[in-house]
Amino acid sequence: MIEALTVVTPKKLLDRSSYDPNQLQSFERVTGIKKTRRWEGATTELAIRAANEHVARFGKKDFDAVIVVTQSQDRCSPCMAIEIHKALGFPNNIPCFDMNQSCDGFIYGLWVSSELDIRRLVICVDKLRAPEGTLDNLIFSDAACAVTVNGTYNFCSPGFLSDGTGSSKLCSDEKGLLRMDGGAVYDWVTSNIPNAIKAYAEPYGPFDFLAQHQPNMSMIKLIDKRSGFEGRSLHSIEEYGNMSMVSIPMALALNEEKILGKSVLMVGYGAGWSAAVMGVDWPKQRITQIVEVD
């Protein structure tokens, strides 16, 4: 089960003053994104910050593994998990490893960690950049979350959708900048995700709420409508933007009061035309915190 969840987001906002006001207005109307949050330090530092805030609030439990999910590693080697392990002073006899996953990474992290019958610290962190000055660069906010996962009893088995045909439509270039064909993303997501939600909800549902990835408000609303979750969907995009794999935990934490004791269907989707769906029964008492950091 998810025992505790910390979401960390930078206080610093990206300056939008150099953008054309007309374009900006159109961007805000379509995406709903009013703020873009930026972390100037390394991704690993943001991940460590999330882990530190997490243990400070929820206690330094006897973690038996550290798992990091990210697609914005500062470097390929060593893995980020071992650096978090060192920074937090965990014992030397536990496994530490990274997973490279996109906006469905939170669900992949929960799934992999739930396969290990031990108490895990799962960190999801991303710091995506599109080319400077483009509207795409306003979409992605930096964020990290830390989750204590122990046992599986409030999860349903996950469902997956993997279709690599769109790999070139949403991918990082040789400089690590994100390149996106927005129209292709829109078409793949709005055509496939509502059906994936319905197919999953049939055997495992009904679910009280939907916590989907937060790509942009137009897509979110269409998916809410087409999947039958209008008015029962958790949003975080206006204040926090598209936080990649941290979007779902942010939506859960931000709306936690609503979901106490309720069932939530989580769905993440993104790069590589990849998606993951998982149901969760949320505990009856609060288990989350949101921390804004400098």
Binding site: V30, G182, G183, A184, Y186, D187, T190, S191, R226
Partner: peptide, 19 residues
């Protein structure tokens, strides 16, 4: 164009792909 897709679906209930 994305706004146009949304507009068509909102007014005529025709899901319209960007393509």
């Amino acid at each position: 164009l994305t706004e146009l897709c949304i507009l068509i679906e909102e007014h005529f209930d025709i899901p319209t792909e960007f393509a």
